[in-house]
Amino acid sequence: MKRKQTKWLSAVLFFAGAVLVGFLFRLLWEYVPRASARYGILAVCGGIVLLNLLWSVLKRRQIEQFSDDICETLDAAIAGRQPEYFQPYEDSLTAKVQGKLLQYYDIMQEGRMQSRRDKEILQGLVSDISHQVKTPVANMKLYSGILQKPDLTEEKRQIFMTTLEEQIDKLDFLMQSLIHMSRLETGTFVLHPTEGRIHETIAQAMSAVWAKAEQKGIVLSVECDPEITVQHDPKWTAEALGNILDNAVKYTPAGGHVSITVRPWQFYTRIDIRDTGMGIPEAHYQDVFQRFYRAEEAAAQEGVGLGLYLANGIINRQKGYISVKSKMGEGTTFSVYLLS
């Protein structure tokens, strides 16, 4: 519609111009007696028309310049370099469009980087999984091979069967963790944060590690006002807390303490899980939340190294965060912050 309008407009303009010129000639020849005056007026009108033409040429030049600048910006963006005439803080239309184009380019770039990173992550995942699976599968192969030997004693067979079962459990546990982790990475599970009593969630988390703690002779204590409510998904939060507690129990020697304290702050509620374990060196504070991280000291213990990673992911998803403070040899405090 607009295009048609402009075409009509230019036609009308041209026509009107021709009519006016004809009229001018007629008037001049009829009414102006002196020749010099006639030519003078014609010259002046010619001058005005010329100025007009120059003006429109100037405007067109500006538009062409504008379009050139934009194309150049796009080219530079495609090639990944900085555009030549780039005055980012000039208050002109060119700068405005350039700014937006570069913004778009950044987003696209970011997207590209992100997908590259995602690919890397997936690659990493796959390699981690294959790496982790390798050992149990190798073991399973070994033990099944052994079990197939005909001249195995019943006793030995039982031992090997148990070991095989253990390996299968381990594999199962690994699979579960890997599934959780992949879901976490790719964001396919949904959290339903509701306002609920943290007391119950903690109780649930504790119930998971109660047995182990008692086995090791570690005292579990809780200090929590039963009325405190936080925004959290009870199931997942319980799992996260459980992972942390599990860690705490795992790395605390027998006879130690694991205490849970809940303190409500203005924006967040803080849940401290303190243990009297071996501690984490400061340099590794951030590392503990990485995938498959295991401290050297804990190499002997069971575990995959995903517990804290999962817990961190779950808490982060709920718009909270976890922080660590530790003293070597004395103990570690994990602080979980949830929106109150």
Binding site: Q62, I63, Q65, F66, E90, D91, S92, L93, T94, K96
Partner: peptide, 8 residues
């Protein structure tokens, strides 16, 4: 340069 159309 064409000035920006931000005078409204």
């Amino acid at each position: 340069m064409i000035a920006n159309n931000n005078l409204k």
